[in-house]
Amino acid sequence: MHYGLALSWSPLYVLLRRRTGMGVVGAGLLTGTAMSLIADETMTPLAGFSAPNGAYPLVTHLRGFAAHQVFGLAVAVTCEAVWALRGRRP
């Protein structure tokens, strides 16, 4: 499930780079932030895959947010590397 979720959020990075002209780091961090807020903090509890957000201490949310920032930057590095190898830019 994690791989599918990650793949479904990766196109957001491409859209941010192509449509807004946002930089690599900004688009990566915004991708991670969007995934954290929408998927982890909203959809997961609503779908019943986790307890309500209030059941967890703040540090748990902050760790998840930080992990998603790393995810967003990893998406950025991967997309930029693929574009460079193919000789295309966003």
Rank of each mutant, 00 (worst) to 15 (best):
A6R: 02
S8D: 05
S8K: 04
W9M: 05
W9L: 05
P11M: 00
P11T: 02
L12S: 03
Y13W: 01
Y13K: 00
L15F: 04
R18L: 14
R18A: 14
R18W: 09
R19H: 15
T20I: 13
T20W: 14
T20A: 11
T20S: 14
G21V: 11
G21A: 07
G21F: 07
G21Y: 09
V25Q: 08
A27R: 05
A27T: 05
L29N: 03
L29A: 02
L30G: 06
L30H: 07
L30V: 15
T31C: 02
T31H: 02
T33H: 08
M35L: 14
M35G: 14
L37D: 06
L37H: 06
I38T: 13
I38G: 12
E41Q: 15
P45H: 01
P45W: 00
P45Q: 01
P45S: 02
P45F: 00
L46R: 00
L46H: 03
A47T: 00
A47D: 01
A51T: 15
A51Q: 14
A51W: 14
P52R: 09
N53V: 15
G54W: 08
P57A: 09
V59K: 10
T60Y: 15
H61P: 03
H61C: 04
R63N: 15
F65H: 12
A66G: 07
A66N: 07
H68Y: 09
V70K: 01
V70T: 02
V70M: 03
G72Y: 01
L73V: 09
A74R: 14
V75F: 07
